[in-house]
Design a binder for these strands. Structure first.
Lengths: 234, 234
DNA sequence: TCAAAAGTGTTTATCATACACCCATGA
DNA sequence: TCATGGGTGTATGATAAACACTTTTGA
């Protein structure tokens, strides 16, 4: 097929869906466009591909430009290539979703973009097909986090079990039994209990844990079926 | 970011990973290139994107051109955009994987492409990064089929339990207990038992079944954990 | 009547769930 | 000392896995 048809050329961009967690809600980081068209509207961060970089490299560059952070958890989501995605010219885009610790982010924020966090349940209108993209990203996050230890990326290095449980409850919009939650998470052997406690959020205090992802493959199995499949749609 | 940097233009193609099952092995359909460069080498079917179509539409077009078939199960796999994927010029490609009933295919085959089926365990060398793409597709197929009723797409409309079991065994390269396999599959409520039997492959004969995917969402849960997670890597 | 493969039944161990209970602390 | 939330223990039911058993047919 290639070689038989004439090649066309296309504009090619990346868009980043950036998830964070503030202790209450799962949040999305969006920026306010400072240029036309749609100046002043909310949008995902994105950028055009350069000649010498892959989409992955472009996404890393875009993420660093906004957050100042390297080495974020990042994953290719989907390529959106409908001729009329919105906007005057046709742009093909590969979407990536990223998970960041909202505290680390706030230290290095690049205000030039006019970024803002929105709760995932109260998103503003986004330009082009960005709302669709975000919906897909939410589904994928739920799906993948049910099977893999992913959500730790949204927490600080040290976190407590109640924090972790709140995070899962925010992501899946459901409640878990704390006893069963603890057992399940500890049975993965991915967590290491520290000696100090967080005394700020309760009287008794809750022990801190860190995650040891080196044990990932061994502990993987126990993540299967973590969340009942009715909460997974993709 | 968009609007600030100058846009570049890129060649954009789709590649199709086509899986089939011949009753013995999981197979991949590849074509022999009839043009330079790499004339005579094995390759995935692909094609350049047209101005007025999405990548999905292009993949459907390419699949129909080769197999003569519409309405195949098809899913976007990944976008490959490394600047040096192989070949002289840079081409960004979105890969799709498709599942087809090998019998239906053989009726409408387009010999112009010099297509051939290879067992997934004995693949020839493929051009560019196509071997990498196929590896990723295999992983994704295993992953997804462990959670979703997908593999039916590889069988005729009527199939027997032993056939279905052989298919799963080929895909996961392991053996299942027939009693447990039957129970598990029947518990999904996705299968409808027919009145006639296949008397060709055994003395006793095996009842035919059809799959009723309308019951998909209801029966989904039971597909979780179908295959032990150690066989899933993505 | 026997071999081969289809299909069913049964036992056991493991795991998920629900929920009762105990513990440590600040007010 | 009591209310609060952290953390542990336990009983129950559901499910997965192993494997023995029965059924049907062609040779």
């Amino acid at each position: 097929m290639k070689g038989l048809l004439k090649e066309k050329n296309f504009s090619f961009a990346v868009d980043c869906i950036i998830f964070g967690y503030d202790g209450q809600d799962l949040k999305l980081l969006v920026i306010k466009r400072s240029f036309e068209p749609f100046k002043g509207k909310w949008s995902l961060v994105g950028g055009f591909l350069e000649d010498d970089e892959s989409a992955e490299e472009a996404a890393v560059r875009v993420l660093k430009g906004l957050t100042g952070l390297d080495g974020l958890y990042m994953e290719q989501l989907h390529c959106f290539s409908e001729p009329k995605r919105g906007g005057a010219e046709r742009i093909i885009s590969v979407a990536f979703f990223a998970l960041i610790d909202i505290q680390k982010y706030n230290q290095q924020i690049n205000e030039d973009y006019h970024p803002a966090w929105f709760s995932i349940n109260q998103l503003p209108e986004l330009i082009f097909d960005h709302s669709t993209i975000v919906e897909l990203a939410k589904e994928k996050l739920r799906y993948k986090a049910a099977l893999h230890p992913l959500l730790f990326e949204l927490l600080p290095d040290k976190f407590t079990m109640p924090q972790l449980q709140s995070l899962y409850e925010a992501v899946y919009n459901m409640e878990f039994d704390k006893g069963n939650f603890n057992r399940k998470l500890l049975s993965t052997k991915l967590l290491e209990k520290l000696e100090d406690k967080d005394m700020l959020n309760s009287k008794k205090g809750a022990f801190y844990y860190t995650v040891n992802l080196k044990k990932y493959s061994a502990g993987f199995k126990t993540f299967l079926n973590f969340v009942s499949s009715q909460y997974i749609n993709k």
